[in-house]
Design a protein around this nucleic acid. Structure first.
Lengths: 228, 228
DNA sequence: GATTGTGAAAGCGTTCACAGCC
DNA sequence: GGCTGTGAACGCTTTCACAATC
């Protein structure tokens, strides 16, 4: 809408940190703070101050030298940049363990991503209610996506069903997918996919853990902090 | 154990991809494949071939020129490097929605991270059984961690309880934490923390989605793929 | 005096190109 | 001939240092 839209290549690394700043700023606002320095924001965000300033500078010059950033205004600017000025309803495919947890977890709706629908291939799961949303058959995806204007889909199926779920989402008109299944999805060009693989995160921790102990089995001897 | 252990600075970026290769290699082995090229591995892993070769070269020279990599042997080498030659029992703190889903999700145990225990501060949750594991009081953490030789803890509490959960884990002797709460944890030096924030992932998708549509509200008009 | 905004430098990760080896 | 392994080039990200501004 604004004329200069589309003309901003914010680095990916910065995009991935903006949501963190946004959450902190929201918390600070709720605490009554209305101005914040890059130093403080960095401390709360677990990064360093120059990085915060560099990141925010990609949005424009919204700070005041010698003072800091106005919290409320910065929240607005980050929200605008991230496209969070309106809600993005999402549809979850898969009403198993994870799908249920995601639907029941209020965090999505609170942060602008209401769960507009849940679908499953399994007829026995259809009809049950999760987090206030009734599970519907996967065949209804096209109508659901169209009528609720959904752009983002969440794949919460087992690995074996994930590619089919993604195909159905894309066919139904979804353009972004958050994938929780431990498989690499194949999608047409132009479809954005992000992946969250819980076991991968643990395996990464395992690497650093193993380096610490020199590859030994996890025993008590390698531990330094004392219990109780 | 091996003498040259500790002497290998594998880049973080590579470490985060090794679990992906490992999963693919396991699948290929189960399909009866016993040799694989960097080209094929790249295709299945959603990356490019030079990256695969570079990544694998940090482990050593385990391929055969003109042929490829022996699947079984490469699996072994990656497992060794990641410290996955034995299981790493984990403890989950928080038996709410997410904790339940994680405990019920078999994927952890399958990939070498059995859920050895679940704890919660809420006495009303204690005693119930999730995924075959009984929920225990959070005060028992030190004994649990010690007796089961646990190095890795999973924080699955609400944001407000996450720092306390982390403090308790560290005090109990855990040295690596996987954090699902949307907050930056403060931990002593030497404790490894990885964070998974589901809403952040959606917000990143929102950015790219919003760029696509030029910041417009999600309406049908911006959609190109047809339904059904 | 304090803090932002930003060029320039340094560091890391990815890609390239091809020598080396089967 | 085919595919790996890797130094070198490139590009992205982080850090630094300080001028600009309040």
């Amino acid at each position: 809408m604004s004329p200069d839209r589309n003309r901003r290549p914010i680095p990916d690394a910065t995009v991935s940190r903006l949501p963190v700043y946004l959450r902190i700023l929201g918390e600070q606002r709720d605490l009554g703070v209305d101005s914040i320095s890059s130093d403080r924001l960095a401390e709360l965000g677990g990064v360093n101050a120059p990085k915060v300033r560099k990141d925010l500078s990609y949005l424009g010059s919204y700070g005041t030298r010698g003072v800091g950033y106005e919290v409320e205004y910065l929240i607005f600017q980050i929200q605008r940049e991230l496209g969070l000025t309106h809600d993005w309803p999402v549809v979850i495919v898969g009403a198993g363990n994870l799908g249920q947890a995601l639907a029941g977890y209020g965090g999505f709706g609170e942060r602008g991503f209401p769960v507009a629908a849940i679908v499953d291939v399994d007829a026995s799961k259809v009809g049950s209610v999760l987090g206030g949303t009734r599970v519907r058959p996967v065949d209804e995806l096209p109508q659901i996506v169209r009528s609720k204007r959904i752009n983002i889909g969440v794949v919460a199926t087992p690995a074996s069903a994930a590619q089919d779920a993604a195909d159905r989402l894309v066919a139904a008109g979804v353009t972004s997918i958050l994938n929780f299944a431990p498989i690499v999805l194949t999608v047409p060009a132009g479809i954005e996919v992000r992946k969250v693989d819980l076991a991968v995160e643990l395996q990464i921790l395992s690497y650093y853990e193993q380096r610490r102990t020199g590859g030994a089995a996890p025993t008590a001897r390698a531990r330094s902090a004392s219990a109780s």
